[in-house]
Every structure is written in C-alpha cells, then in structure tokens.
Simulated scan of single mutants.
Amino acid sequence: MIIGLTGGIGSGKTAAANYFSSAHDIHVVDADLKSRVVVEPGKPALQHIVDRFGAEILLEDGQLNRAALRQQVFSDPQQRVWLEQLLHPLIREEIISDLHSAASPYALLVSPLLVESGQHRLTSRVIVVDVPEELQLARTATRDQVSEQQVRAIMQVQAQREARLRQAHDVIVNDRDLAHLHQQVDALHQQYLAMLQEKEI
C-alpha cells in the first residue's frame, strides 16, 4: 500500500513524514529530494535548464541555483510549465523505483505537488497535513528567511487548501505542537496496519 502525504508549504509535511519513519520505521519517498536528484551535475535535465535559462542559473560549483530558478519560474507561468514538463516524468521514474524497494508494511510518498502533478495516482490513500494559511505564511517566512510575497507566490502555484482537502482520505491538523502532530500520526499508523490486516483476511 502506498500512501501519499501532502500539504502546502510550511504545513509540517516533513515533520509528519519524519515521525512516520523514525517512530514506525515506514519507508518514506520524498518527491522534493527526487526533484534534486534529477538535476544533479552531469544529468541531462540540468543541461536542458542551462540551455534555456543560461549559465547564471548555476552556482559556482556547477550545482543548480534553485533560488534563482525559483525566481524565474514563479514570475513566468510559461517557464514553470516548461520546467514541469521536463522534470515531472523524470521525478516520477525516480519515485517509482524507490517505492518498489520499500520493505515496510506500507510506503509513504511525500510531495508538495502530489495532487497537481498527478503523483496521487500512484497512491491508495492521501493524507493532507492542514494548517491555517496565516500560520503557514508565518512559519515559512521565518524558516526560509524569505518575504511573505514570495511565500504567497509559492502558495498560489500549489493546490488551494480547499482543493487539497477534497482529495484527502485522512487529514492531520497541524496547528498546535509536535506532540499533537505525533498523536495523529500514531493513530493513522494503527489505522493503516488494521486496513492491511483486513486485506489479508
């Protein structure tokens, strides 16, 4: 069973995924990490990005300057569409390969664009980590040291909160402390184990 985990920027997806992994030994595949793998130096996708945006899109060590690329694509929807068409199929291949290696009772696919990219079609269930927008803005601006305006631009690209919640089978409400988040993960873990047992009977 593959379970998707998503939520807007600053919602606490990573904290939830880390706890599934550390407390319950669940295999976690992070789509964000896969998106870095496909643009590593020497990978064809990085060369395509340089051809389109110029060498100034690279850091001095030849790595992709993700902040510079983000600025380009979030200010121009056409550039964002081009980039997604290049990267999404490559990221999908990496994700599928990693999911197939899972040895835990179920695997978790963590992705901020789970719904928008169609990655939710790889999953049996979807968990949404939900948080009020004002809290999302405040957390992200503090964590990433970026302006509220940039956070809002990223939030515009991600599914709107209501649209994301419509796709959810399960919701983790992350508007309190970590202990509250962990309780909800524990409960979901037990629920998924029970579902898997039922399937075996």
Rank of each mutant, 00 (worst) to 15 (best):
G12F: 05
A15Q: 03
Y19W: 10
H27R: 09
V29P: 00
D30S: 10
R36G: 03
P41A: 08
G42N: 08
L46C: 10
L46N: 05
H48S: 14
I49K: 06
I49G: 05
F53N: 03
E60T: 13
R66F: 15
R66W: 15
A68W: 04
R70N: 12
F74H: 06
S75I: 06
D76T: 13
D76V: 14
W82F: 15
L83R: 02
L83Q: 03
L87A: 02
H88A: 08
R92H: 12
I96A: 01
D98H: 09
H100S: 12
S101L: 14
P105A: 07
A107M: 06
L108F: 06
P112L: 03
P112T: 01
L113K: 00
E116D: 02
G118P: 00
V131D: 00
P132A: 15
E134Y: 03
L137V: 15
L137F: 04
R143K: 04
R143S: 12
D144S: 02
S147G: 11
E148A: 13
R152D: 01
R161Y: 09
R164C: 11
L165P: 08
A168D: 05
A168G: 08
V173W: 15
L178W: 10
L178Q: 13
Q183W: 08
Q183S: 09
D186A: 07
H189I: 14
Q190E: 12
Q191S: 10
Y192Q: 07
Y192N: 09
A194V: 14
L196Q: 07
K199S: 12
